[in-house]
Nucleic acid binder design. Structure first.
Length: 213
DNA sequence: ATACAGAGGTGTTCC
DNA sequence: TGGAACACCTCTGTA
């Protein structure tokens, strides 16, 4: 997977972006709308992101909708929340139930207003148990604040390998390695003329056939 | 049928 | 100090 073949792949990617740009832009606009929401709405999105590690995004989404419907998102005990996660197909439901309940007190949505994205990510890392680099970036992107952040999950890493952005997928992704690869992805994004947050959706849609979150 | 990889990983504990 | 190993803990798709 070198040279000309990679150039060819990149051309295909650009083509696909041309076609999907309206859909992708609409989705990114949706994210920005979410980011303008109330503290409760921002917390709801946070709960989704606390659900997703090692789980399907659909399961996390389902779980949060059920929590809201049962009025447990802000009132349920860790056990009650965990049970809903379990029944929704979220992995590590008990642990994540605890994290969601804990985040009710640790999460301060006002902190995220008007600060640089990197700084917002640092705050989340430090203050929200359950968010690492990947999920903190994911969360901010879902609030429309991820234009300079990479969401380095296994699918994106696989794609970065395919397009020659990285030469191998690291076994474990330390924060240092994360920042390094994020830098390479930014260069790539600049080089091919597709915004970082759009690249993520583009890769993700190629994997799953849809633009979700 | 039974096994096994994959699911948008993260925190803690050791050394 | 940074890293590797392990705990968390369940369902689904595939062969």
């Amino acid at each position: 997977m070198q040279g000309k073949q990679q150039e060819f792949l990149i051309d295909l990617l650009k083509e696909r972006y041309e076609k999907m740009a309206p859909e992708i832009k609409a989705r990114l606009d949706d994210f920005k709308q979410v980011g303008q929401g109330s503290h409760e709405q921002l917390f709801e999105e946070l709960a989704f992101c606390l659900c997703t590690p090692q789980s399907k995004a659909r399961a996390g989404d389902l779980a949060v909708r059920r929590l809201k419907a049962k009025d447990l998102l802000f009132k349920g005990t860790a056990e009650q929340v965990g049970l809903v996660l379990l029944k929704s197909g979220v992995r590590f439901p008990r642990e994540k139930g605890k994290r969601i309940v804990e985040a009710r007190t640790s999460f301060d949505s006002s902190v995220l207003e008007g600060v640089p994205e990197q700084q917002a990510r640092e705050w989340l890392l430090k203050n929200i148990k359950g968010l690492g680099m990947k999920e903190a970036s994911h969360y901010l992107r879902n609030l429309g604040k991820g234009s300079s952040l990479a969401i380095l999950d296994r699918h994106i890493l696989k794609n970065l390998l395919r397009y020659g952005v990285i030469s191998q997928i690291p076994q474990t992704l330390s924060n240092k390695a994360y920042l390094e690869i994020e830098g390479k992805l930014k260069e790539f994004s600049l080089r091919i003329g597709i915004p970082l947050d759009a690249v993520d959706l583009l890769f993700w849609s190629a994997e799953t056939g849809e633009v979700f979150k």
